[in-house]
Design a protein around this nucleic acid. Structure first.
Length: 281
DNA sequence: GCCCAGGGAATCG
DNA sequence: CGATTCCATGGG
C-alpha cells in the first residue's frame, strides 16, 4: 500500500478497489455520496470525506495518523484482494459477480457497531436500516465536529425500550436493548468472541435475543473480520437457488464472505445478473 | 393498498 | 426435528 500526503489530504493508491461500492454495498450503513460526488460518513467516531479517481483514493482533510491508525485498517488496504480474487474467480459465477462488484473490500467495523447494525437489519430494507441507525446515533451517540458517533452498548443499556421508541425500530428495539445489556453487564464478551473459534463465536452471539444465524454471521464477517463467515439472507438464497443448486464450491470457503459480498451486490443491483422473476421472488 | 425487506422467536404438528 | 405465523415500520 502506497500513499502520499498532499497538503491537508492523503492520496492512497489501491488497485482494483472501489470506495463507493465498498461503502454502499450494504455492509455498513453510515455513508452517503454527497451532491459533490464525495463520500461522507462515520465509522465509530471517525469521520470520512473521500473520493476516488481511478486507483487513487483522496481522503480530504486527513491527518496521517488518522489514516494509518484507522482508515487504512478499516478499509482493509493491506490485504491483497487481487490475489484472493484470482482464486475466487476460478468459479465462473463468482467471476461474473467479481467483474461487476470486485472492487468491494470487507470493512473492519467495530464489533459492537456491526452487531447492533445487523440486529436492526433483520426483516428490513437498507434505506430504512440507515434511517434507524442514523436516529440511534443522533439520539444516543456523542456529538463530534462533523456529526454523531455510534453510541456505546453501555449508553444504550441505561435506556428503557420506551426511550428507544423514537428510533421507530419496531420489534427490534427490545433486541437492541437486550444486546446492549448483555454486553454492558459482561454476560457477552466481544473480546472473547473475537478470540473464539468460529462455531463457538456463533453460539455466543446467538445468546442475544434477536440474534439468529444470519445476524451472527454478519457480525462475524463485518465486525470480527471472519472472512469465512457466509451470511445467507433472502438475496443470497436466490443466488444459491439459481446458481448453486448443488452447493458452492469448497475452495471458496476460506474467503466465502468476500465471495458472498460480491454475489450480494451483484444480484441486488446488476439488472443482468438473473432473470427479472428471480429478483422479485 | 399491496408486497416486501441483509430474520428471529414462538408456536404447532 | 421442520413448517408456519407473528412481529413494526415504511420504501417502492
Amino acid at each position: 500500500m502506497e500513499y502520499i500526503v498532499q497538503g491537508k489530504n492523503i492520496i492512497a493508491h489501491q488497485r482494483g478497489f472501489s470506495l463507493k461500492d465498498t461503502l454502499d454495498c450494504g455492509q455498513c450503513f453510515r455513508f452517503e455520496q454527497d451532491r459533490d460526488g464525495k463520500i461522507k460518513g462515520f465509522a465509530q467516531n471517525h469521520f470520512l470525506c473521500a473520493s476516488q479517481d481511478d486507483n487513487q483514493i483522496v481522503f480530504d482533510n486527513m491527518e496521517e495518523d488518522e489514516f494509518n491508525g484507522f482508515w487504512r485498517n478499516y478499509l482493509d488496504f493491506d490485504r491483497d484482494y487481487n490475489l484472493i480474487k484470482s482464486e475466487l474467480c476460478r468459479d465462473e459465477i463468482i467471476a461474473k459477480a467479481c467483474e461487476y462488484a470486485g472492487g468491494i473490500h470487507i470493512v473492519k467495523q467495530d464489533p459492537w457497531e456491526a452487531l447492533c447494525s445487523f440486529i436492526i437489519s433483520q426483516n428490513n430494507n437498507i434505506p430504512r436500516i440507515k434511517g434507524i441507525i442514523s436516529r440511534l446515533c443522533e439520539d444516543f451517540g456523542e456529538q463530534t465536529e462533523y456529526g454523531f458517533a455510534f453510541p456505546s452498548a453501555e449508553t444504550i443499556a441505561d435506556c428503557s425500550v420506551e426511550a428507544l421508541s423514537g428510533l421507530r425500530a419496531g420489534f427490534r428495539a427490545k433486541y437492541i436493548l437486550d444486546a446492549s445489556c448483555k454486553i454492558a453487564s459482561g454476560a457477552i464478551d466481544l473480546k472473547c468472541i473475537a478470540e473464539a473459534d468460529i462455531n463457538t463465536a456463533r453460539e455466543m452471539l446467538k445468546e442475544i435475543n434477536g440474534v439468529g444465524p444470519k445476524v451472527a454471521e454478519c457480525a462475524l464477517l463485518f465486525g470480527f473480520n471472519r472472512l469465512e463467515a457466509f451470511p445467507v439472507d433472502v438475496w443470497i438464497k436466490r443466488v444459491l437457488e439459481y446458481f448453486y443448486k448443488s452447493g458452492v464450491p469448497e475452495f471458496i470457503k476460506p474467503y466465502g464472505g468476500i465471495a458472498q459480498q460480491f454475489l450480494f451486490h451483484y444480484i441486488r443491483t446488476c439488472p443482468e445478473a438473473v432473470p427479472e422473476e428471480y429478483r422479485k421472488k
